[in-house]
Amino acid sequence: MPLEEVDETETGLRARLVDVGVDLVAQEGAQALTLREIARRAGVSHGAPRRYFPTHLELLSAIARRGFAELGKRASAVVEHGDGPAPAREQLASLAGAYLQFALDSRGMYELMFRHDLLESGHLGLRDTSLPLFGRLVELVGVARPDLDARLVAGALWANLHGIAQLWNWGSLQLATGAEDFAPLLHAALDAHLGSGE
């Protein structure tokens, strides 16, 4: 009898493989995401994932899509709260803070989500999950600073936030700046890209 349960639906096994991948990346990082290890932890034969994900890249993309969905939920939660919309700069600070906190809380997933080879694969649908968040960043920058090219400033700000996240996760920024949390760095990045807040 094969390792897979015969009564499990295709969508059920597909979801289970992704669930296992999400757990694995959280525990051991992106480098642990091999088809063989995911299959072993899912309790299926090592060839089973290929029936649902013909390439390793497609399975990694499905796992990363879960990360983008979680990041999107966190971003929405901090931007769309309260009695009414906060000023754009305040929303940007909240959005950027949620992004950095996600990078701290989900280091392995964060690393996987921003691998260039995954984002480059437009036919896998990952851009459909990742670009709306960038679009929101562009929109808020445009409201906060209508005199600037919002797309370029948002791109530079995102690159800055990504650098903060990576260097913070590696311990480099704490060592270099003596900062105990990333909030001062976040505010400095916003000031650098948007000008000093009132």
Rank of each mutant, 00 (worst) to 15 (best):
L3V: 00
V141I: 12
G197F: 11
S106Q: 15
R115D: 15
T34G: 14
A98D: 03
F53T: 04
L157I: 01
T55A: 11
D128P: 06
E90K: 10
R41P: 06
L33S: 11
V143P: 00
A32S: 15
F134E: 00
A159P: 07
M1N: 06
G122W: 12
G135N: 04
T9R: 14
L33P: 04
D19R: 11
A192T: 13
I63Y: 06
S121G: 12
R115V: 14
A150I: 03
G178M: 08
G155E: 07
A150F: 09
L186N: 05
L133Q: 10
V6C: 00
G47N: 06
P85Q: 09
G155F: 05
L140V: 01
A144F: 03
E37K: 13
F134C: 02
A192Q: 12
L24R: 10
G47I: 05
S121E: 15
L112V: 14
G47Y: 08
E28I: 06
A103K: 12
G142A: 04
V153T: 07
S130H: 12
D105F: 03
F114H: 15
L100M: 08
R145T: 13
R51N: 05
G108A: 14
V44G: 04
L140W: 01
E70H: 10
S106K: 14
E10A: 13
L140D: 02
S76L: 11
E80T: 02
A156L: 15
A39H: 08
A15S: 11
E37Y: 06
W158S: 12
L152D: 14
A156D: 14
Y110P: 10
G108V: 14
F114Y: 15
L173N: 01
L112I: 13
I63E: 02
V79I: 14
L118M: 13
A15Y: 00
V20G: 03
F114V: 14
D128H: 15
A77N: 02
A98V: 08
L119H: 05
L3M: 09
G43T: 04
G163R: 01
A75R: 03
S76E: 12
E28D: 14
M1K: 07
Q91C: 14
G171H: 13
V6K: 05
P85E: 12
L95G: 01
V44K: 02
A189W: 00
R89Q: 09
F134G: 02
L157A: 03
H162L: 06
V18K: 01
V138P: 01
V143N: 04
L92A: 08
R14Y: 09
S130T: 09
D149R: 08
H162R: 01
H123I: 10
A159I: 08
G135R: 07
Q174F: 07
A150W: 02
L126Y: 10
P85R: 09
L133S: 01
A39W: 07
A39K: 03
A39N: 05
P54H: 03
S45L: 05
A154I: 04
H162S: 09
G84D: 10
L133M: 09
L59M: 13
E5S: 10
P146I: 06
D23Q: 06
Y110E: 15
L104Y: 04
S61A: 15
V138W: 00
V25Y: 06
P146H: 10
S76K: 07
A144G: 10
L71H: 00
G84C: 07
E58Y: 02
L95E: 01
A159R: 12
G178H: 11
I63K: 06
E139C: 01
S94W: 02
G155S: 15
F102Y: 15
D181H: 09
